[in-house]
């Protein structure tokens, strides 16, 4: 008995060992790529903790030559950015823009994706092709015509105007992504629900939305990041005055007319990164659940 256990343990161990050696190249490759990928961010982060003079005279990697010297690190850049007037208001503005500009397109895109995937109506494919075509329209070409309409409707300079603009710019990608995901859901499931007498609305709310959480969450992250990092759309439709300017405009103004305070951007980048990171980690559990869903038969 004990012998058998020992033996199986040993084979287990050797199995694990060979597996480890087999996978080692992959692991090394992944780690190397991950390292190269993060290197610029790391450099930026270390730079944000150094005074301007140091940034100019030596590279950020030099901190590793004497890493224990705490005095070489400096929080002044973060202090300067946070203390700059209007930063708190800019964060509020950014949230005011980004939250509705993420929620509205998700809602519309999910409905539309369901309709394109599971409802039969004439011209469905044509409409879908049209939506996909919109993906290649550069948004810059729409700025002046849309702003003209906004000026007549009194929407220019209002948050509603920016929400609608971001919604429209985000929808083509959202519908495309979600339609492909929702279209790949098992047909039997939806037919069974229909046979049981579920209406389209019921199928949508009880089946499609819960099953599509991973796709919805990834689109939410995309859309939120895009809106959060946007400078152009906000600047054109809202303007850059302090009462409406988002963080991006505030940060770009921080460097001064001649760009003389460029070094503040290092700290500014990390401060503006906090919110998208929170959104990402907040939605991460949905990705994981989505990947695991259906992997094990219970």
């Amino acid at each position: 008995m004990t012998k058998a256990v020992n033996k199986s343990n040993r084979t287990n161990n050797t199995n694990r060992k060979t597996e480890f050696w087999q996978k080692l190249p992959i692991h090394i490759a992944i780690l190397t790529i991950a390292f190269i990928w993060t290197l610029p961010s790391l450099g930026l982060f270390i730079s944000s903790l150094r005074p301007r003079g140091d940034m100019l005279s030596t590279g950020w990697w030099t901190v590793f030559w004497h890493p224990l010297e705490i005095t070489q690190f400096y929080l002044g850049n973060y202090g300067d950015v946070l203390r700059s007037s209007g930063m708190g208001e800019a964060f509020l503005n950014s949230l005011t823009i980004a939250v509705p500009a993420t929620v509205i397109p998700i809602a519309i895109a999910t409905f539309a994706a369901y309709a394109f995937a599971w409802m039969t109506f004439p011209g469905r494919q044509l409409l879908f092709i049209l939506v996909v075509c919109l993906l290649v329209v550069p948004l810059q070409t729409t700025l002046i015509p849309v702003l003209r309409v906004y000026a007549q409707l009194g929407l220019a300079g209002t948050f509603l105007g920016v929400w609608l603009a971001h919604t429209a710019y985000g929808l083509p990608l959202g519908i495309y992504l979600l339609r492909n995901y929702i279209g790949a859901l098992p047909k039997d499931l939806i037919e069974a629900a229909a046979v049981d007498g579920a209406s389209h609305l019921k199928i949508f709310t009880k089946l499609i939305v819960p099953l599509s959480m991973p796709a919805i969450a990834s689109f939410a992250v995309f859309q939120f990041l895009w809106v959060w990092n946007d400078l152009l759309v906000a600047l054109v439709y809202l303007g850059g005055t302090a009462d409406v300017a988002p963080v991006t405009i505030q940060l770009s103004n921080l460097v001064g007319s001649r760009g003389q305070d460029w070094y503040l951007l290092t700290a500014g980048a990390f401060i503006s990164m906090i919110v998208p990171l929170m959104v990402f980690f907040g939605l991460q559990r949905y990705f994981v659940r989505g990947i695991l869903a259906g992997s094990v038969k219970s």
């Binding site: 700025l143 002046i144 015509p145 702003l147 003209r148 906004y150 000026a151 007549q152 220019a156 600047l235 054109v236 850059g240 405009i249 770009s252 103004n253 460097v255 007319s257």
Partner: peptide, 15 residues
């Protein structure tokens, strides 16, 4: 705005 040269024409053209 530090993108004055692009922002102003957009504003003017759209009234």
């Amino acid at each position: 705005v530090d993108t004055f040269a692009t922002t102003l024409p957009i504003r003017v053209d759209s009234g």
